[in-house]
Design a protein around this nucleic acid. Structure first.
Lengths: 137, 137
DNA sequence: TTGGTTTTGGTACTTTAGTATGACTCCCAA
DNA sequence: TTGGGAGTCATACTAAAGTACCAAAACCAA
């Protein structure tokens, strides 16, 4: 939010300065109009590139998880938690400790996940889950 | 992104109107000049956004794999091939068939990979490899 | 040609992963 | 209030995965 305000403020100030310059040149005739326009064009071009790069970076960071696919596959809340931990590279034992349940429980969840994702292995499950956008890429 | 462009355009137009209003009280200056400048600004801003989006799309398609990290970790060409197949969710047996070697060979490669990537499991290796940008994310 | 790395492969072993099955509790909607 | 899904856990098993150690080609640069 602060950044946005800063960017907008800078933009407005830049615009102001440019207007003043153009006005000045119009009166005194020192600087040619074409140069002013060229500068304005370049400045706004650069601003466009900059803004675009910023917003794209944000889009990349925010993972677009498709919760519809999770539902459609019938993956429960707990199963999804396990799936996330699998994709983080944890073993069944480690997941069990992290979620405060037994390893047997995790094995059950994993088996169900493999069925629902139509995968033979956990590595394949990771791949399929990412293809379905139900895991952050 | 569309929103950003719209907001900026509106802002610039609003600014222009304000300038015109304030100007009317002082000098009966050139109205069309400022409008032209504003249009140029908007147009070049949009062009900047558009150009940037195009170039970024190209960068995205060519996976930004950091080959330096591969070298620094001492991962050989063959090992890297195996790593790619692991991340695709294949089993050792399947990788062996795909690369026309025995499963023993793949196991050796995998063990070496786990050592070099400082991972305990293949799933963890996938994670670490992606963090190091040596695998397409 | 020599020496080091890569790639390959094997055996023997331990550890995880995954399957199948059954059972118990909890909760929620019909 | 009852049936069903979700979550839990256990046992017993099979299948992969991974480790350790060794060794022989193949390749490549000095």
């Amino acid at each position: 939010m602060k950044k946005t305000i800063f960017v907008f403020s800078s933009l407005i100030i830049a615009l102001l300065v440019l207007f003043q310059l153009s006005k000045y040149s119009y009166v005194s005739g020192d600087i040619s109009l074409e140069i002013i326009i060229a500068i304005i064009a370049i400045v706004f071009f650069v601003i466009g590139v900059y803004i675009n790069k910023k917003t794209l970076r944000k889009e990349k960071l925010s993972s677009p998880i498709n919760s519809k696919n999770i539902e459609q596959l019938g993956i429960s809340k707990r199963e999804y938690e396990v799936l996330v931990q699998i994709s983080n590279g944890l073993s069944n034992k480690e997941i069990a400790e992290k979620l405060f349940v037994s390893e047997s429980t995790i094995k059950t969840h994993v088996s169900n996940l493999l069925l629902k994702l139509d995968a033979k292995r956990r590595t394949q499950a990771i791949q399929k889950a990412k293809d379905l956008h139900i895991l952050a890429i």
